[in-house]
């Protein structure tokens, strides 16, 4: 079995991992780096649960070998919130809009949507439906997710670049607006 030493940056940290050639990026992230937020819903490239950013582009980590990420910058769901835990506008919007139930599809959606909103800062409803149609959710009927994308786009537009939403205190379990 061929093994390779892989150098890459994951969520801003340099990593050096010894992997088998056949190991997927998703399995390497989950098993070797214990970043288990990247989920596997199909392992054949359809559900989008395994989406991560490789050099800024959203990719399905179940369809990529870990060795293909050699030298890359990878961002997983664990790298989306800022260093002190402040949620991104997309993460806050998911919570605000009931964009998740079981939460299994959620990391893939959030990572995909971060990338989608970077490319389409002011999406129409049609754009949003189209833009997230590569991710499957079995719980929400997509209602809250679509709303969350809209809200996140608004929040991002109203907030200086690279700043997360202001009012996303995680501990606030109180009544919604």
């Amino acid at each position: 079995m061929s093994e390779h030493i892989l150098h890459l940056t994951v969520n801003g940290e340099a990593q050096h991992v010894l992997v088998e050639g056949r190991k997927t990026l998703a399995d390497m992230l989950r098993d070797d780096l214990r970043l288990t937020g990247t989920h596997l819903g199909c392992e054949h490239g359809v559900c989008g649960a395994c989406t991560v950013l490789v050099d800024g582009a959203a990719v399905r980590s179940c369809l990529m070998f870990a060795v293909q990420a050699h030298g890359s910058q990878v961002t997983t769901i664990e790298g989306i919130a800022d260093a002190d835990g402040g949620l991104s506008a997309v993460q806050s919007a998911f919570r605000e809009c009931h964009g998740l139930q079981c939460g299994f599809c959620t990391p893939g959606f959030i990572v995909s949507i971060e990338s989608f909103l970077d490319a389409h800062p002011d999406p129409s409803d049609e754009d949003i439906r189209e833009g997230i149609s590569g991710n499957l959710c079995r719980c929400t009927g997509y209602q809250g997710i679509i709303k969350a994308v809209r809200l996140a786009a608004e929040t991002r537009a109203a907030t200086p670049q690279d700043m997360s939403a202001p009012d996303d205190a995680v501990s606030d379990a109180r009544v919604g607006a």
Binding site: F94, R95, F104, A173, R174
Partner: peptide, 25 residues
């Protein structure tokens, strides 16, 4: 105060940040 209100979910904070604990984790 709570019942009958659309209280935001306490499950969400861990799930939107990739810190859920599913069987495969």
């Amino acid at each position: 105060r709570y019942v009958g209100q659309s209280v935001k979910r306490r499950e969400d904070a861990r799930l939107v940040t990739g810190h859920g604990r599913f069987v495969e984790d």
